[in-house]
Amino acid sequence: MATLEDYCVITQKDLEDIKDSISTQDLPTAINTIKEYLKKQDLVELNIGVTGESGSGKSTFVNAFRGLGDEEEGSAKTGVVETTTEPEVYLHPKYKNVKVWDLPGIGTQSFKADEYLELVQFERYDFFIIIASDRFRECHTQLAKEIIRMRKTFYFVRSKTDLSIEAEKRKKNFDLKKTLDIIRKDCENGLRKIGIEDPIVFLTSGWELEKYDLNALQERMEKELPQHKRRVLMLALPNITLEINEKKKKALEENIEKVAFLSACLAAVPIPGLSIYVNLAIIAV
């Protein structure tokens, strides 16, 4: 039986099969198949769990990832103290199948990674973002190791990078690239000391998400997601860097090219008005 994943990527073989249906004038089957592919692309869910210590910028990241400010309608609550006591889901304002979860803070004395993941229902997330606003601590590595044990993916994100940069700018020989490298290496070395081998840390700012390591983080997430979820991630990312905008354009063009291919096939069928009829049926999805 075909799975949802099978339907979410239209292959060249799929196109040829639909073309054959058109050429034999099995038009209802061809139209329904095209519409089914396009509909099921929009049913693919992406669930992202965002976690970290209280005050680390979790909620601001949840908002920024969805292209919202902290005070806009539908934004996650932010504050200097923990405002999230249980998993709260926030839908992407445009792509409702993208769900960003603001998870309760970690780092209390009684924190146990396995119990925490059970509490937040770890199985529903495609990946986790583990956020720290300064150095990563034992609670972060406990959580990371448990996520690995459960065969899930996570990313270490160091937030509030803009604040660190502002502090460093006061120094005489300030160099942005050098400063970012120092911050990143300090985080990675700290993680090695508490048991994480070959850590990768992405630097971000909730207030200036387009800066620092957003593109590198996006590329890593896209690379490690199943193929049928990559398009969903790409479309959901905020339009804040040239690289992301170019990838979004490419993702949208892929569907346009496939529909255009089928439209050309329809034009070859000698039935007056057929091409217009089928194209309208597809566009109506």
Score class of each variant (00 low, 15 high):
1 M>G: 15
4 L>K: 02
7 Y>D: 05
16 E>G: 03
19 K>C: 07
20 D>Q: 12
21 S>R: 12
23 S>R: 14
27 L>C: 09
28 P>Y: 06
30 A>H: 07
30 A>I: 08
34 I>C: 15
38 L>Y: 12
41 Q>F: 06
42 D>V: 01
45 E>K: 10
45 E>W: 00
45 E>S: 05
47 N>F: 05
50 V>W: 03
53 E>F: 00
53 E>Y: 01
54 S>T: 10
58 K>C: 05
66 R>M: 06
67 G>D: 01
72 E>P: 04
79 G>N: 07
81 V>Y: 09
85 T>K: 13
88 E>Q: 14
90 Y>V: 03
90 Y>K: 15
91 L>F: 11
94 K>G: 01
95 Y>L: 07
100 V>L: 06
100 V>G: 00
101 W>H: 11
104 P>G: 02
104 P>N: 01
106 I>N: 01
106 I>G: 00
108 T>K: 10
112 K>F: 07
113 A>Y: 00
116 Y>M: 02
117 L>S: 03
119 L>I: 06
119 L>R: 15
121 Q>K: 15
122 F>C: 00
122 F>L: 02
122 F>K: 10
125 Y>F: 14
125 Y>K: 04
128 F>Q: 01
135 R>C: 03
136 F>R: 02
136 F>G: 02
142 Q>A: 09
144 A>W: 05
151 R>W: 03
153 T>W: 08
155 Y>G: 09
158 R>C: 12
162 D>A: 05
166 E>C: 06
170 R>D: 10
170 R>H: 13
171 K>P: 00
174 F>S: 09
175 D>P: 04
175 D>G: 04
175 D>I: 11
176 L>K: 14
176 L>Q: 15
176 L>I: 13
178 K>Y: 06
180 L>A: 10
181 D>F: 13
182 I>Q: 14
183 I>V: 12
186 D>P: 00
187 C>G: 12
194 I>A: 05
195 G>P: 04
199 P>Y: 09
200 I>Y: 11
206 G>R: 07
206 G>L: 06
207 W>Q: 15
209 L>T: 01
211 K>I: 10
212 Y>P: 10
215 N>C: 11
216 A>W: 08
218 Q>I: 14
222 E>F: 10
223 K>V: 02
223 K>W: 10
224 E>H: 11
232 V>L: 03
233 L>N: 08
237 L>Y: 02
237 L>P: 01
237 L>H: 01
237 L>C: 08
238 P>F: 01
249 K>C: 08
251 A>K: 11
257 E>G: 06
262 L>W: 13
264 A>H: 07
265 C>E: 14
265 C>F: 09
268 A>N: 11
271 I>A: 10
274 L>T: 12
276 I>L: 10
282 I>H: 06
